[in-house]
Design a protein around this nucleic acid. Structure first.
Lengths: 339, 339
DNA sequence: TTGTATGCGTTATCAC
DNA sequence: GTGATAACGCATACAA
């Protein structure tokens, strides 16, 4: 890699002159500036980023800690983060906690040494269930901004970007009741332990209460793939009066549709199905599932923006931004009526 | 952030003594070593990674450039990369090319300044279609190792990790012919432009030729979501003799199952369906789709291992590793016979 | 307009 | 056993 020193030697001038020339300093003559720049491009000179970072004590890098990236929600958020970070001249270092507290702690530790200027984090299932917050508080104490999104630990004072979990499920449930005239709405859940799961269930329960209907919940936490199908099938078979299914994740709704069809239920006439979903969710189901579409990409964008603002001005006080979801009804994707 | 200098000042000893003490140098007395370490932990000292990087001229960081991360294949590969990198004390900086050559070039450019010790890259659709390789060759010339996976440009001399696209599809096709006794196998494709798509199609064509059967291909490149369903539906309706469908991506196979059911085809008795798939693919289809399971996670692991070896010894000559896929037949996931 | 000197935080070499 | 000094590559305050 070409360095300033090498350029200086070749041109018989000092290192600082070269540096200034490349940075378009006014104190450098037109002539030498051109000479310097020509040689620089010729030798494909690029300032060593590490050296610059050491000098300025800024890494222009954001640490992103995600529970997983195979969940399409987090994948989309990551996309939003990456795009916004790049647009603002930041790189991102990605760590996956794999839903464990231990890896999350370790990642924070390892990057809290000047490697990154701030963190964007969705806490691991374990961290959230056990309400572990010390590692995050410790990071904040070192004056490194942290932004939490989606999976949030409330006990920590930092910027937060969350989904309107309660609201969106409340609205979806109410839509099933009021618009679809459903009375026996089954909630299917495999994330009951998470705060987002709890909020979604509360939204569902509240809506049912407000309309004097009874809640019924099929909990699939820790169920294997085969079990999910079987349990949904068995439940539907045993409860033929179920006329709507609300899934609070991005998988079980589609499974429910498949099981309902197998049982001969007509969708959507006999049974409405709503789930959470992302880019391709609706393409994969037939008949189309209605989805609560979380604006994952947007969450990534907003999170990054907030964090960068916080990095630039650490006196900013913490905010919590709620990103509203969108209810995409199955009708709206019925592009071709014959299907 | 605590520095060596601060520790030294507080202990009234020199910076170099502190440094040696922390690095367990033999030339330091038991006594001072303990004093130093105690203060260090007390003040939560961590060596500044940037300074170390400048000193050693190594970033211990890998640049990962992916076309997208919302495709589950790349998400799983990323998972494998992250895990292996971390296990070897490397961080990863992730860039998403969004399938554009321009962003890919830019990412390589921006990170080729000491930020990373090497690259793992799956080239963008555009780069591959247009056979653009200059940016990669330029990077290699700066003595920065590059490893390409999945989407490979053959014209470049570097380590490569690829899927057995031709073989796996050949084998799957032959299975449909020999085991399932199918004679009219439709190939559904939305990635015909990519090298992996071409190879998969060749595998299919070769198998059919070898068994004196005729190929029929439904090309869905650039089709919108609604169009995909319609085109598959229309094709199946117009060609009632189709007795097997082979999808070479992770979406259209499931769509095909749904459309076939809508047309009253019995699966798998009337129609076999095989697609590419990952973690949750089979859960989402009913009846179960058979999938060619690419070992994405493993590819990530192997890629990272190879790259790190290459970083440590740049004289190593380039290798190409083929990671075999696995044919997961639908029967093997029929955990519950009643379904 | 150009050059010299200094420092970012660390490690390594060499004296003492 | 300890410390002074230099160096990584860059940027900048200060001289000339």
């Amino acid at each position: 890699m070409t360095t300033l020193k090498e350029l200086a030697a070749l041109l018989n001038i000092s290192v600082s002159t070269v540096s200034k020339a490349l940075n378009d300093s006014h104190e450098i003559s037109e002539n030498t500036r051109i000479r310097v720049k020509e040689l620089a491009t010729k030798l494909n000179y690029k300032p060593n980023r590490i050296a610059q970072q050491l000098k300025t004590n800024k890494s222009k890098t954001i640490g992103v800690i995600l529970p997983t990236v195979t969940n399409p929600f987090f994948a989309e958020v990551l996309h939003g983060i990456e795009k916004t970070a790049n647009a603002n001249d930041y790189d991102i270092i990605v760590c996956l906690s794999n839903e464990t507290l231990h890896k999350e702690q370790r990642s924070l530790e390892l990057l809290s040494n000047g490697s990154v200027d701030g963190f964007i984090i969705a806490v691991a299932r374990e961290s959230q269930v056990e309400q572990q917050t010390e590692h995050i508080k410790a990071t904040l104490k070192t004056d490194t901004p942290v932004l939490m999104f989606d999976r949030v630990v409330h006990d920590v004072d930092c910027n937060k970007v969350i989904v309107d979990d309660f609201q969106s499920v409340y609205a979806a449930t109410e839509h099933l009741i009021v618009h679809d005239k459903r009375k026996h709405i089954l909630l299917v859940s495999n994330i009951e332990e998470l705060s987002v799961g709890k909020l979604r269930i509360e939204g569902y329960t509240k809506a049912l209460n407000d309309h004097k209907l009874e809640a019924q919940i099929l909990n699939l936490d820790h169920a294997g793939d085969g079990d999910v199908e079987r349990k949904i099938y068995d439940y539907l078979e045993a409860h033929p009066n179920v006329d709507a299914i609300l899934s609070i994740d991005h998988i079980t709704g589609i499974v429910a549709i498949n099981m309902a069809k197998k049982l001969g239920r007509a969708i959507p006439s006999d049974l409405s199905v709503v789930g959470f979903g992302y880019e391709h969710t609706q393409v994969l189901s037939s008949p189309k599932i209605s989805i609560i579409h979380q604006k994952a990409f947007k969450m990534g964008e907003i999170s990054t923006k907030l964090l960068i603002d916080n990095i630039k001005d650490k006196t900013l006080k913490s905010r919590t931004v709620v990103v509203p979801s969108e209810l995409n009804l199955s009708e709206s994707v019925e592009v071709h009526p014959q299907f």
